[in-house]
Design a protein around this nucleic acid. Structure first.
Length: 565
RNA sequence: UGGGGGAUCGUCUAGUGGUAGGACUACGGACUCUGACUCCGUCAGCCCAGGUUCGAAUCCUGGUCCCUCAGCCA
């Protein structure tokens, strides 16, 4: 554990579990669960919860369950359960046989409800939804008892059975806990336990027409699975007394402990399922897995790695206070992982022709390039070099400012892994003045990128041989929102108004080194000096990958340049 | 304005009566065939006011601010 403590910072949940273990609670067992409702795709906030729940079970030699909280058939779908499973697996967690569904417990849950009724702790209410609301009272005023609150056990049992049998229409009756209509915590004012919904459930079909509510289902599902620590987000703090009440009154087989932590918020990002759905449905993004989405599938398609996401979740920690994490930390986490693992490649995004006047017309040279300076075992590759090349537009300036040490008239720079070249001429469009072509001479003695006379060059730029270049599209992604807090309340505006119009820029005609044509969908690499990219999993075709920019490299020149302006 | 929670560098997070530490960011430097990486350094914080104590982020009292709850959603 000491080793662990060096890399794994403590948090209040870990501390609590260690205390429980020391006190001999639960016979030393630690069993957690991740309980998604299959009504949407998982996002980075869920990743935090998964890493917490599953990570902590692993850490204490415990077990973890995946349980679908599928008690609201109107909003749920198998499409979502499949996507959720895929995402969790991709993140690197294997729940083995421990896959559960609240809907599998419907019969047992019904039994618990009957126990409650028999104890006089639950009753069938026949008030309308609106009347129930008006009877609930307010934050400062107590509620009023329903006229049906004192029905006999016998009548309640009869009605509840007939609800199940489908004798009543949706909304005609509900089953309510009989607690206290004057309770200072509104959650405890006779909460609804069951409602009638004559709809098909994605797993149980039409076997049921009454469905249990979250507060009733969740705690009992936990108990049925022998969960020891039920971790959830802060907004359920109000529900904890009810969680405990149901477990006690329904005579649950054990009593898991609910512990709440702050959900993840990220700058420039929205993590509300409802709003994410809106982005998809209104077409602001292409789909749930649009590379700009903070969903697991979106991040995956963008080129984020499971290790990066897990490390990110470890770094942000867990606490109870509301907080908003800088999205820069997520970006740092991918760079950190990709730096170690991504093969380096040369790719010119915005091409500018460069002609080497003293290079033989038809000569092609093969140069050695290192695949990853961080990892020698990744070896080297060959790069074709010839008279006409492409370089990055940004790497040439006719009138360079101070501290700019790329190519400019009269300047010498190194073409990475190739030769030193000196700019001798610039060809411009006579009409527009646009730079069309740059001419250079090369020094044959500098082959491979160093000079025998030991002279230094300040700049090294990337390049691609024009006749060998592989041409394809590259998408440059930027943050989806312009405001650190997309929900920022400016009058009459909502998060949709804060969408960044430049969150995607598609570049066509990018000139990439030929090796890049071989990447398979999902493969990642670094375009040297430009950033980390991956071959898009959907839009790539065999022999013609299309690239997504995962994240840029840190760019200190960009900062200098920006400060200058 | 009832109940429940929470306030530590710009951001995230440790610290539970004994020198406020780490990470990200920012800034400065070293290195460099990626202005990357790496390394070194700097700036920077206990919500406020009292009290207890030799000593308080930590304990006590009183404030302030923020979050959350009035679904037959989860």
């Amino acid at each position: 554990m000491n080793d662990q403590n060096k890399t794994t910072p403590s948090n209040f949940i870990r501390t609590k579990i260690m205390e429980d273990l020391a006190a001999g609670k639960n016979d030393g067992r630690v069993i957690t669960r991740f309980p998604p409702e299959p009504n949407g795709y998982l996002h980075i906030g869920h990743a935090k919860s998964i890493c917490l729940n599953f990570g902590i079970a692993d850490e204490f030699g415990g077990k973890y369950n995946l349980r679908f909280d599928d008690t609201n058939p109107e909003k749920e779908d198998v499409e979502y359960v499949d996507a959720i499973k895929e995402d969790i697996r991709w993140l690197g967690y294997d729940w083995g046989e421990r896959e559960f569904y609240a809907s599998n417990y419907f019969e047992k849950l019904f039994g618990f409800a009957v126990i409650l009724i028999e104890q006089g702790k639950a009753y069938v209410d026949s008030l309308s939804a609106g009347d129930i609301r008006s009877h609930r009272g307010t934050l400062t005023e107590p509620g009023k008892d329903s006229p049906y609150r004192n029905r006999s056990v016998k009548e309640n049992l009869d009605l509840f059975n007939r609800m199940r049998a489908g004798e009543f229409e949706d909304g005609a009756h509900v089953l309510r806990a009989r607690i206290d209509m004057a309770h200072p915590n509104l959650i405890m004012r006779d909460p609804t336990l069951y409602r009638i919904r004559k709809v098909v459930h994605h797993r149980t079909g039409d076997a049921w027409c009454i469905y249990p509510m979250y507060d009733f289902t969740h705690c009992l599902s936990d108990a049925l699975e022998g969960i020891t620590h039920s971790l959830c987000s802060l907004e359920f703090e109000n529900n904890r007394p009810l969680y405990d009440w149901v477990l006690d009154e329904a005579k649950a087989p054990c009593h898991p402990q609910q512990i709440e932590f702050a959900r993840l918020k990220l700058t420039y990002t929205i993590l509300s399922k409802r709003k994410l759905i809106q982005l998809v449905e209104q077409g602001h993004v292409t789909a749930w897995d649009d590379p700009r989405m903070p969903t697991i599938s979106g991040l995956r398609r963008r080129g984020y790695t499971p290790a990066a996401i897990r490390n990110f979740c470890e770094r942000i920690g867990v606490a109870k206070r509301d907080s908003i994490v800088d999205v820069g930390l997520l970006e740092f986490a991918v760079r950190e992982d990709l730096n170690r693992r991504a093969p380096r490649m040369l790719g010119v995004l915005r091409p500018l022709r460069l002609v080497i006047d003293n290079y033989p017309e038809d000569q092609v040279d093969e140069l050695d390039a290192v695949n990853n300076p961080e990892d020698e075992t990744m070896g080297t590759r060959k790069l074709p070099f010839s008279k006409v090349l492409y370089i990055e537009k940004d790497d040439f300036l006719e009138d360079p400012p101070k501290k700019y040490f790329r190519l400019a008239p009269g300047r010498e720079v190194r073409l990475r892994y190739a030769y030193y070249v000196t700019c001798t001429d610039v060809v411009k469009d006579e009409q527009t003045g646009e730079i069309m072509e740059v001419h250079c001479t090369y020094d044959p003695a500098t082959r491979g990128g160093s000079s025998p006379d030991g002279r230094k060059v300040k700049g090294t730029i990337h390049w691609v041989s024009a006749s060998h270049a592989f041409e394809t599209d590259v998408r440059l992604y930027d943050r989806l929102f312009m405001q650190p807090d997309p929900d920022e309340k400016t009058e009459g505006k909502n998060f949709i108004d804060n969408l960044n119009p430049d969150s995607i820029e598609t570049l066509s005609g990018c000139k990439l080194e030929p090796n890049l044509a071989l990447l398979a969908p999902g493969d990642f690499c670094q375009f040297e000096r430009m950033g980390y990219f991956c071959a898009d999993a959907k839009d790539s075709r065999p022999g013609k990958p299309v690239f997504n920019r995962t994240v840029t490299l840190r760019d200190s020149w960009a900062k200098i340049d920006k400060a200058r302006k």
